[in-house]
Nucleic acid binder design. Structure first.
Length: 723
DNA sequence: TACTATTTAATTTTT
DNA sequence: TTAAATAGTA
């Protein structure tokens, strides 16, 4: 066997990983170290060299994009389509299993997947029906609680209320939520994983079957697995399965949604004799950038330990710019972008990264003024748009009348005289009789409702029946088209004034063409419609349409993970923003922020700009802030400070000390007075320093006191206590 | 039922 | 500041 094509061009560590013996393996793959490459080549190695059948491989990723990329790359490496190779996201694979074994899983054959938006609506309705006051925040808390429990693999009966009545209520809500979902044949994202785990755990034969089938389990982004995903993997692996997991503990940034880096350590215990390979050679960034990243991440404890290095050039210094405020920051970024573009570079090679989405606004304004095309990542995706979800809800009802989530969504959309009162009656009936809204609607219409309301309900029900009848046997796209027309959603949106309604109608047309180009998998045991609906939920589609245009990329540091750009700006690098205020409280939170910073830095290939503003308007208030502590963690050698602007008259002391000031002790900054510094005054109480002027004995500070308002005080008399 | 005023809160996001 | 959700009004 000629193994050249598989091993060619791999470095020693990569080769060691790819050719590792058929034993559990843990690959610690630093940013830009060829992680996907190793995974792809490992699969090819197993198939081509070890002679493993593609059927015996299971490859798991977190995103559809990663799954598609992996499949494509394996196929091009092996030069043949690998049909029976299971590659997919955790959710996609769990879904596949549940479709095949819906009976064992206790689900109706035509169960539907609900996304987080559907889930939240369902919970809101549940709270309303139980007359629990929802002060807006409660539904989200309930949703968070339910998902967190499911992520941990827990059912209501497994959870202890610790004698806490609040917790007891959450558990009982979880229970009720479960009942509603079960009744309607609805499965949320976390439920997919939980059920897939349970169906294997509780069915010895099934488990046997899959264990025998999947000898090798390849896992991408292993540091992002949550408890239930890890449990599923372990169950599937059993004693004989061979997991090959790739991850980077330093890039774990999703703890808040259940991911546990600890699984990396746990893996070595659960699979004794694990082969560990570290990929530390980086093919992306300059040495300077890597050194900076290494220096920052070194401040974290409990790491596996890893140091990125490169064969490549040292590269230019990291530029740090202290802006006066967020507009100045945007101006600076845009100025540099202009230079970059004028030098003949491609706009799409430049990315502006920030911690939170709200920061994009000022940057966007600047870009619009400068006429620089840009694209903002994130936001609503195609299948998440309201009009699309409305159309899908009609489709879902034709497939499954008991889908309460869809029922409530469209029962009065377009308006057909089924108001809140009528719906409320249905809810009450449904709850009392433990039945679906559909059944409740039928019962109420014939008994309790007055003529007009009953008529409206009957019209709606026969509309759905008519949709189901008339589209029976139609091609998927004709079905979608027909249902949209019968729903009169188009007429409904035509009434929307302006461009909004137009876009909605265009999107509905787009939905039909999405259905047209959708290719159902004949191997799946479900109707093309159900498959299309599942696809819509599992793969919400692209965020923005004009992705192909050459434009500057704007995104959060989170969404930048996995991407790389020759030119990167990290904006808003201020304490409180990044690391975020809400992460500062616990050390774990701070460490995760630091990992996020590490992710940000390692996105840059050639040039990295770090900017922060001394003053930033947040929530309509001007705030003073200090440079992010992460900037100080980068050794000065790698930094070039940029301060081109004329000295601003006041503030005389910037929040970010210059290089020289930083190396000296803070005592030469008088008492350590900084803008934004919290102080306490005997009489006026707590406050924040807004301004400062003068030297020595004449020095005065302007302090904004919480209760006493803003005052100028002479430092030498005020006796301020630093907080 | 639809529109308008008021209130409230404010990371990160994929499936 | 501003976006979203609710409460109040026509």
């Amino acid at each position: 066997m000629d193994v050249t094509p598989i091993l060619d061009g791999l470095n020693d560590a990569q080769r060691q990983a790819v050719t590792s013996p058929p034993e559990p393996a843990l690959i610690i793959a630093g940013a830009g170290s060829g992680k996907t490459r190793v995974l792809v080549h490992r699969a090819a190695w197993l198939i081509d060299v070890e002679g493993i059948s593609p059927q015996s491989l299971l490859a798991v990723t977190f995103t559809n994009k990663a799954a598609a990329e992996m499949r494509g790359r394996i196929e091009s490496l092996l030069q043949l389509p690998v049909k029976h190779l299971w590659i997919g996201t955790f959710h996609g694979l769990a879904h596949r299993m549940l479709r095949r074994h819906w009976r064992e899983a206790g689900l109706p054959q035509n169960f539907q997947i609900i996304d987080s938006d559907d889930q939240l609506r369902l919970i809101k309705r549940l709270l309303k029906s139980l007359e629990i006051d929802d002060s807006l925040r409660v539904p989200k808390e309930v949703q968070w609680f339910i998902n967190a429990q499911k992520d941990e693999g827990l059912r209501p009966k497994h959870i202890d209320d610790d004698g806490d009545p609040n917790r007891r209520q959450l558990i009982s809500l979880y229970q009720s939520y479960e009942e509603i979902c079960q009744r309607g044949g609805l499965v949320d994202f976390a439920e997919l994983l939980l059920r897939a785990h349970e169906v294997l755990r509780d069915n010895a034969e099934l488990l046997q079957h899959y264990r025998r089938r999947f000898q090798h389990l390849l896992v991408d982004e292993f540091q992002d697995t949550n408890a239930i995903q890890y449990a599923w993997l372990r169950l599937l692996a059993g004693d004989k399965g061979i997991p090959f997991v790739v991850g980077d503990d330093d890039q774990s940034i999703y703890r808040w949604r259940g991911a546990r880096v600890e699984h990396i350590h746990r893996f070595q215990k659960d699979f004794p004799g694990t082969n560990i390979v570290k990929l530390e050679q980086n093919y992306r960034s300059t040495e300077t950038i890597l050194n900076a990243a290494n220096a920052v991440i070194e401040n974290n404890s409990s790491r596996m330990g890893k140091k990125l290095w490169t064969d490549g050039a040292t590269g230019e210094a990291i530029k740090v710019y202290s802006a006066y405020n967020e507009r100045d920051e945007a101006d600076f970024v845009i100025g540099r972008l202009r230079d970059w573009i004028n030098q003949g570079n491609v706009r799409a090679d430049a990315a502006i990264l920030y911690r939170s989405n709200a920061q994009s606004r000022v940057l966007e304004e600047g870009l619009v003024n400068a006429r620089i095309p840009y694209r903002v990542y994130g936001g609503l995706r195609f299948f998440e748009r309201a009009e699309i979800k409305d159309a899908l809800a009609y489709l879902r009802l034709t497939s499954n009348r008991n889908d309460d989530s869809s029922f409530e969504r469209v029962v009065n959309k377009p308006t057909r005289g089924i108001g809140a009162r009528t719906v409320e009656m249905m809810r009450a009936y449904a709850r009392a009789n433990a039945c679906s809204m559909w059944r409740a609607a039928g019962a109420i219409a014939s008994d309790d409702l007055n003529g007009r309301a009953a008529n409206a309900v009957n019209t709606f029900m026969s509309l759905i029946e008519r949709m189901a009848r008339e589209t029976d046997g139609m091609d998927l796209h004709n079905k979608v088209d027909h249902v949209i027309h019968l729903s009169t959603l188009i007429e409904f949106f035509e009434k929307d004034k302006g461009e909004k309604g137009e876009t909605r109608i265009e999107n509905l047309a787009e939905l039909v063409s999405a259905a047209k180009s959708f290719e159902p998998d004949p191997a799946e045991e479900m109707s093309p419609l159900d498959e299309f609906l599942s696809h819509a939920a599992l793969e919400a589609g692209e965020g923005q349409a004009d992705a192909w245009e050459d434009c500057v990329q704007l995104m959060t540091m989170h969404s930048a993970k996995g991407l790389e750009f020759p030119l990167v700006f990290m904006c808003g690098m201020e304490d409180g923003l990044f690391p975020h205020q809400r992460s500062l409280a616990d050390p774990q939170g701070l460490e995760e922020e630091r990992r996020l910073c590490y992710v940000g830095i390692t996105r840059a290939m050639q040039s990295l700009y770090i900017t922060h503003a001394e003053q930033r308007r947040l929530h309509g208030m001007d705030n003073f802030s200090q440079a992010s502590r992460f900037i100080a963690e980068i050794p000065d050698d790698y930094i070039e400070e940029i301060r081109p602007r004329v000295q601003v008259a006041r503030p005389m002391y910037s929040s970010r000390p210059t290089q020289r000031q930083r190396s000296a002790t803070s005592s030469d900054n008088e008492l350590g007075i900084r803008l934004g510094q919290q102080v306490r005054h005997k009489k006026f109480g707590d406050g924040v320093i807004l301004n400062y002027e003068g030297q020595g004995a004449h020095a005065r500070v302007e302090v904004n006191f919480e209760s006493a308002g803003t005052k100028w005080l002479v430092l030498s008399y005020a006796n301020l206590e630093l907080m």
